[in-house]
Design a protein around this nucleic acid. Sequence first.
DNA 1: CAATACTGCTTCATCGATTGAGCATTGATG
DNA 2: CATCAATGCTCAATCGATGAAGCAGTATTG
Lengths: 352, 352
Amino acid sequence: MKPSSDARPGTANSGKRTTIYDIAHSVGTSPSAVSAVLNGTWRKRRISQKLADRISAVAIEQGYSVNLQASVLRRDRSNIIGMVIPKYDNRYFGAIAEQFEEGARQRGYFPVITCTQRDPELEFEAARMLLSYQVECLVVTGATDPDRISDLCHSAGVKVINLDLPGTKAPSVISDNFQGALDLTRLLLRDWGNEDGRSESLYFVGGRTNDHNTSERIRGFLQAHAEKGLNVPQTNILACGYAAQKAHTSLAALERLPEGIFVNSTISLEGVVMWLSELPPERQQRIQYCCFDWDPFAALMPNCVGMAQQDVPALLDHVFNLIKTDLDSTEIKQIACNLRGQRPSQHAGVAS
Amino acid sequence: MKPSSDARPGTANSGKRTTIYDIAHSVGTSPSAVSAVLNGTWRKRRISQKLADRISAVAIEQGYSVNLQASVLRRDRSNIIGMVIPKYDNRYFGAIAEQFEEGARQRGYFPVITCTQRDPELEFEAARMLLSYQVECLVVTGATDPDRISDLCHSAGVKVINLDLPGTKAPSVISDNFQGALDLTRLLLRDWGNEDGRSESLYFVGGRTNDHNTSERIRGFLQAHAEKGLNVPQTNILACGYAAQKAHTSLAALERLPEGIFVNSTISLEGVVMWLSELPPERQQRIQYCCFDWDPFAALMPNCVGMAQQDVPALLDHVFNLIKTDLDSTEIKQIACNLRGQRPSQHAGVAS
DNA sequence: CAATACTGCTTCATCGATTGAGCATTGATG
DNA sequence: CATCAATGCTCAATCGATGAAGCAGTATTG
């Protein structure tokens, strides 16, 4: 026997946590029998029903719970899977986090998520930390430099998957940003040049031109304009980063008001609606927008023509499939977005 | 020396993770020297600068990272603090999660958050799981039955703190729901009986009457009515739970349209605005609402008169203070909310 | 020059759970 | 009755990191 033999049987072992040694002592058996009973391998290890029952009873009575540090250390598998995510402050990342946890639990994993505030250095440090906790697999969501983290994981023999933003050194699962942006822009441009008599090209607000998603969305945005024979001046692309304030500032700096805006994320949209709300009502009403990503309130705002909702369940299904099949490609899987148009009745409300 | 001596020095130890034994072997020194160097205690343990440098170099070269399972098992402290949270799908819980992580990291802890989908059984299981990971402290956010989790933690000698919803067996940090609801209701009732000629009492939508926050908010709601000499019929309280769909259904079932609604959470508000958007525009415009909790888009919706934003930084400050001082009271600390009124220009927009 | 202090490292037990190997005991078989 | 198998359990090594104790060497002191 090893530790604390001062456990008073029958009373909650206050202070220190109960171990299998405490229980073995109370029951008068060996730690290995206790271990077998409590981790479910006791039938295989030929422990009698009677002893198993006694051990279980004492374990419950003393409020035992395994020390997973010890357990994981001994076994080869940790059952922990990690996720690095930039923020929790919008529906997209919120849904990813929730469904990652749910999917992980369903598959018998213990999920650990770390939020890294879009800070590349923190992303890397968080990944390192998760590796130290022996994660079996790491899902890197929306990372600025996913390849650096891929290298880290490979050298530790840990599976990595990129989500939302692709990398070149691990399989990636992302949305079909080009098609989504194309559809969304078409929706906003649908009535352009008709009844309303609008003819200018749209503005594009938010994101960073050097990130893959933004550049793909710009490509879709431009193609939709080309289809209509519209030319987009360089100055209409305001890829000002992912902060609400930046979008606000960029728009406020414009000399002439835009007629329509393609907003690159709900975060940027916060800045856009803030800016809109500061305009006089009659000017507000002229400005329509659409937004990549979905939010239940934003979708019902008066000037919102449509949103592209990323298919989070499908994204995570693919992630978990990759985890299972441990395919070690560097393929980029693209998932279609769901286009959500404005509800008709609200639309009517605006027109009044 | 203990494990894998087949490590080829100079190459990434593919497959298996590098351990201090591998490094000790490569450098030609002892594991304990390696341990001391890599965890920073080497000066205290009188390791020479020269040896420390060689060890560090090899560690970096081989991509070493500590096995925290082993490390935590050996030490008495884990540095892990856990949080159980119901959802990530709104700004309030999103902000709590983000700031919990940030605050924890600043204080040298490793935060682990688990999302439990408002499922009491999952809340309990998740808490149990976090205990198995040797958390030093557990923050239980918005739990249905926090006391049951408190018992669990006490028997394991682990500190617990309730956040958002109070319990009786651990210190709690919550918002001042009564005062917040009182202020918010007053705001919505401000013009009642004047220009608009409205005289009915408001409706209260969302939450559960048997949860502390909802009942406190109802108390504030009623008091604001009493101040105006308004009587609130029992049928105006629609505490239909925390799902958007429930709020929608409850409102749709009403025979007469309400003139004003106090919405108990942004989740419920989703159902409310959905319901509103389905009404004909001229009826929509008559219905004003306010909402406990804050969301940047919801705050700018045409019919929104105001929101009560819970003070997440202050809430978490108190949580971390409690963790530090390990006070074992069962006190309930209440934090004031910030009332956020509708921006004037948007208001004007609605009136037009 | 002996006693003492200091430097720089290694040895080994330990944290708690897991698991292959092995030891009694009982029952079945030829 | 000897042999073999099955049953029910215990022993002890192990996972990787940690740190108290200890052991050589070198430097300092009286």
